[in-house]
Design a protein around this nucleic acid. Sequence first.
DNA 1: AAATAAATTTAGGGTAGTCTAAAAACTATT
DNA 2: AATAGTTTTTAGACTACCCTAAATTTATTT
Lengths: 219, 219
Amino acid sequence: MNSFTEENYLKAIYKLIEKSGSSVSTNAIAEKICTKAASVTDMLKKLSDKKLINYQKYQGVTLTSKGEKVALSVIRKHRLWEMFLLEKLDFKWDEVHDVAEQLEHINSDKLIEQIDKFLNYPKFDPHGDPIPDANGKIQVQKSKSIAHFIKNDVIVMTGVVDHSPAFLQYLDNTGLALGDEIKIKEVVFFDRSLQIIINKKSTIFISNDVAKNILAIKK
Amino acid sequence: MNSFTEENYLKAIYKLIEKSGSSVSTNAIAEKICTKAASVTDMLKKLSDKKLINYQKYQGVTLTSKGEKVALSVIRKHRLWEMFLLEKLDFKWDEVHDVAEQLEHINSDKLIEQIDKFLNYPKFDPHGDPIPDANGKIQVQKSKSIAHFIKNDVIVMTGVVDHSPAFLQYLDNTGLALGDEIKIKEVVFFDRSLQIIINKKSTIFISNDVAKNILAIKK
DNA sequence: AAATAAATTTAGGGTAGTCTAAAAACTATT
DNA sequence: AATAGTTTTTAGACTACCCTAAATTTATTT
């Protein structure tokens, strides 16, 4: 079994590789985990000994398939717990992360399979991120930031880029939620801000900064 | 905040005091936690420094009100999670303990209050043990082992003494569950075994050893 | 190709929790 | 009250994880 800490390292490495598409550096991991590079080096040796990562001094790391499996299982648990908190326990969008961060390390296959069943096998979490299945398979969703759509496009909100409580609260306040239909009514040429219609009802204005952080697909 | 380990020590001390009614010894704690006396002594110093226990070398320990509060909060979480697993996630009676042992250390007031609400504020857990409320208050239930009842008593099963998977599985197999009505049909004089009728339907025989481990109250 | 800068690793040490073995303090017996 | 037995504590050491500071390797600049 892997420790709480090992699981967090593997998850961080997975996410960094996912974002960059290549092997990740010691410093990048240190920043992600909020620790120091020296501590990371220690852990990389340990994870390498356990055959969870491919690591050669000074060369950056990638995950072995064994390591990737662990990372995906942690991510699966995290996202299912987020979903559970939101749907069943009336948590707010921005409250789920910290608790899920703890729950993701609970070790029980039966528990997580039952939670999955209880939620009726969701494929995406409350942020629009895909939930790996029990075998680590991920369903992809080819959504783009809404800053890339043009006037009169009708789209469906599928996720967010920025996961910070501040941003999520902002969305809550504007009434924007996953699954909403969005029509691009106007694109302001000079600052690329948008005028959008949510669910054929309310019309709001959002800045390009916000638009870049909202994901959607063509309807 | 208290560590996972500190919480486990406080919980163990609470349970030992509850059972014995007096202060507990280093050795008793060591046995309960499955560790060595020397490790216990170390931890007792630490808990004493944090004003969670009353401890004088060689004199045994009791909980301070601060320590008792922590212990009760852990027990509350444990029993609510057991209830949740059993009622909402189709866990068996004997499967819940190990997972609840992990979940009891999750730190989130909102989470446990919502679980409590989700379960509709139960007062007793699946083993018939009382669930402390958010303030640590416990509702007592003056039940006795069914070995103490006599012929023709009609009683309701409220709990168990032995919490081992083996015993719980045995009960499952015989069809005995919390809340069942039990009528004492016969008490065999020579070995004090019982013939009982469950819910006015099935008649079964149980040994005195088993009877001593089943709790019930007069109907 | 040196020299400098940046990233990474090593060295040495700290805390939390564990252990074994030995010393000290209680308890019970005579 | 002294001895024997048991319990508890101390001493010293181990693992997991973290740190700072120094050394080493790689990358960049001239």
